[in-house]
Simulated scan of single mutants.
Amino acid sequence: MRPAECKDRVTARTPVHGVVIEPTDSAEVSRQKMARIILDSMYQFLGLLDVDGTVLEINRAALDGAGLDLADVIGQPFWHARWWAVSEEVRQRVRDMIAEARSGRFVRCDFEVFGDAHGSRTIVIDFSLTPILDDAGQVAYLLPEGRNITEKIARNAELSRKNGELQVALERLKELDGYKTRFFANVSHELRTPLALILGPVDQLIQDGQALAERERFRLAAIQRNARALLQQVNNLLDLARIDADRMPMAYVHANLAALLREVAAGFDAVAEDRGIRVSLRGEDELYADVDRAKFMRVLSNLLSNAFKFTPPGGRIGCSVERLAGGRVLVSVQDTGPGVPAA
């Protein structure tokens, strides 16, 4: 659209921020008035200074925030205005920024200024000065801009406060978790001793009890089996405490995994016979790998224990250990139970 056409479109004489565009205005005057309307309609602080920091133009938002009229600041040093009356240090910093910008440098700083409730309340602005060059490349004007960041700073402060509270809560949680870990460790150690004192005599009685009746041997075997199961659970608690404390030791040995699987499965022979469950072992007879023997056997024991738990009487459990490509080994336990629910 050409300037003349634009002028024809703007015929309203209603004031906008005190500016009235007349139908009789020349195209140049109309553009100047529209520029003034645009300037005053901008929410943020915006103005124009000469190279010495004298105010040439300031938009309405900046004036209203400080309770000023344009006549109060036009032709005056920028740093004398109400915005910077927070302190002499602020005024001096503005003067220093003008000196830097006059040399052609973009400068930026956060300030607390009088910029709300007609200058009766302070806000924090992200303030900058941009040098505007003439056609010869020399600084001709300075463009001051300010964006109200009071709410942003308040949100950041609140976020920092909440982060601090969260950190305190996390430290407290770590402290409580430490109590739990030490409790598990202490209880585990305390339970191991009486269990060992139970198992020792029972093992001795079974070993030396050829003269015992079958009924007594069966009862001693039940005591031995359940005491060992309880000791295993105590050891699990102790390992949990070690894991929580990041002190779980690993003792690697070169072991025959197939033999370890057979050894663990043999411990369930009595349960399998009682419930009529058929257990089959498949795979290689010898398959060596570096493992923590005790922990590997515990994993196998847990898998088989779960299989027996969910396999109905007369069911089947299959165990296998096989070598895969890439130096890997696959150990699997399968059963004819209901399987893991999809959920």
Rank of each mutant, 00 (worst) to 15 (best):
D25A: 13
S301T: 00
L46P: 13
N186V: 03
Q204F: 02
N186E: 06
E284Y: 13
V51L: 06
L170N: 14
R36E: 14
E165L: 15
V279C: 02
L260A: 06
W84Y: 15
R31A: 15
E151S: 03
N226A: 11
V234F: 04
A169V: 12
N186M: 05
A12C: 03
Q32M: 14
A258Q: 03
E100R: 07
D335G: 01
A35N: 09
V271E: 10
R36G: 14
I98H: 02
I37G: 06
D135Q: 08
V139W: 04
R31V: 15
A258G: 06
L191E: 03
F127S: 04
R298S: 10
L199A: 07
D72C: 15
G315F: 05
A99F: 12
E273P: 01
A117K: 12
G327Y: 00
L49Y: 14
L170V: 15
M1Y: 05
A251C: 11
S332C: 03
R192V: 14
E158P: 05
L166H: 11
R102K: 08
E165Q: 15
H118L: 14
D203V: 02
E190W: 09
A265I: 03
S332N: 04
N148T: 01
A61G: 15
A213H: 11
A255F: 08
D239G: 11
T122I: 11
V187F: 07
L220E: 09
L191D: 02
G146F: 01
T150I: 03
A325Y: 08
A259N: 00
K152A: 15
A157W: 04
I98D: 02
N256E: 00
S301G: 01
G75N: 08
V333Q: 02
V331R: 10
